[in-house]
Design a protein around this nucleic acid. Structure first.
Lengths: 111, 111
DNA sequence: CAGATTGTTATCCATATGGCTAAGTAATCA
DNA sequence: TGATTACTTAGCCATATGGATAACAATCTG
């Protein structure tokens, strides 16, 4: 379960893969089209797609000789959830800290 | 700039490091306390802290022989920003798709 | 059918990652 | 001062990662 967060975050930890995701937000695309603009050989590029797929961030379907790649919405939500949950926690802390700071500033410093 | 997203996401792609972050949302802690409960040698654990620190997710300060570790709020916001931005984009797409699906369902199927 | 497209599989390689032990330094305590 | 505590540094090791080439397979297209 939680293990999946590993795959999701590590899938996102690469600019090639983030670029693929960005491209896919404009709609599904065949592998060869996604490959354009990425300066690497096709098999290398396919490994990236493989990671995105096994992290559940995309799914693919082959028709004829063309494989079309689609974005998957659900898993990113898990990453967002983790981040926002913890961000909330520690920004809460920071808020309390700055409240404390303000409080201290309002104290008569030493005059 | 954007390069930092690599470091942030890959720092988050490990359960030990996420656990450290979770712990730190309850407040700063010395290295040795953070180390408790992680079944690995101190030098291994320090590598994790090193990654968190070079990703900017934590900062540390040494007083005497104790190094205290603090959470850093800003960088996580960058990760959240990337995710929510793209989530919005593709959930938007999914919305349009389901709207289309609904629309098609309302059409007389084949007549 | 011949040839071009579009992947796919199999290997290989260099570097990064995540773990270890051993040994060293720098405070603090008895 | 000697021992203990709390890291720190320096290697070493196995596996994962991100890249490559070469060769194969399965569609289309003419």
């Amino acid at each position: 379960m939680d293990n999946n967060l590993n795959d999701i975050f590590s899938a996102l930890a690469d600019p090639t893969r983030r670029a693929v995701i960005e491209r896919l937000t404009t709609g599904p695309a065949p592998v060869s089209e996604l490959h354009l603009g990425h300066d690497m050989a096709m098999p290398s590029f396919l490994k990236h797609l493989g990671k995105l797929e096994s992290a559940g961030l995309i799914h693919t379907a082959k028709a004829g000789r063309v494989r079309t790649v689609h974005l998957e919405a659900a898993p990113i939500a898990r990453a967002v959830d983790w981040l926002t949950h913890h961000r909330t926690l520690w920004e809460g802390r920071l808020d309390r800290l700055s409240a404390l700071a303000e409080h201290l500033e309002k104290e008569p410093k030493d005059g």
